[in-house]
Design a binder for these strands. Sequence first.
DNA 1: CTAGTTGCAAAGCATTTGCCTGTGG
DNA 2: CCACAGGCAAATGCTTTGCAACTAG
Lengths: 126, 126
Amino acid sequence: MAERRNTIQLDAIKSAITTAGRPLSIEEILLESSKKVSTISLRTVYRVIRKLEEEGEVTAVTLPSQPDRYEPSEVADRHHHHFLCTSCDRLFDVDGCPGRLKSLLPDGFVLTEHELTLKGLCAACT
Amino acid sequence: MAERRNTIQLDAIKSAITTAGRPLSIEEILLESSKKVSTISLRTVYRVIRKLEEEGEVTAVTLPSQPDRYEPSEVADRHHHHFLCTSCDRLFDVDGCPGRLKSLLPDGFVLTEHELTLKGLCAACT
DNA sequence: CTAGTTGCAAAGCATTTGCCTGTGG
DNA sequence: CCACAGGCAAATGCTTTGCAACTAG
């Protein structure tokens, strides 16, 4: 049944996400895919992203007081952190990890995950 | 003009925040101060916390998908990070800092702040 | 022939506030 | 006597969706 159609909107959205090299917000995805399909709507971006998310193709990145951003799951699955530019509000991936985290813990605490968000100015905003 | 009254509610809230030793959510503050003033209302917690925040006595801690939590500004001003227990949902302060963060940055990026959130199980939930 | 798209209006949703009546510092 | 507390109901501020009519794979 589930006949799968390959629409230009789906294409534009997928391409936006994989090309960006950083997690994009719904608005950013809308903006970016508009360049290919000028009439694309916010509604469609939401619908497609939800579907890609369910299918496990994209993963959400959540920051405080910020809308979720999305990146390809294969990128998200590689352990990494993020850099938020406080000027242009764009989020970037940062490879590597400071390590030595367990030594920060109080006694009796067990560490299972951690999130590091760096903030400052990106190269374009410096 | 601003006649200042020292109510038992204000007392209970201040005491809850300073005694906890960790950032408390509005709900947690309500719960904790209820032990001293059983009739205290959510409305009052909000009103008092806002005032203390404006006066710079308490500082908000914001996490993704979590209500804000509050701690005394003197604690917040000492650079530290947080540990979120994924079982009891309580947030703890963690002293120290992994360092070596600048080396993670791409070229041309300028680092001004960073936030580290550790997650796992607290001593009580292990 | 239908999955997919649009566009807008409306629905979440969780936190925060307004208001108005009491009350206690 | 007036700043503050209490109790709801309602606003707020987003992000997300429902719907019904179109469009295109």
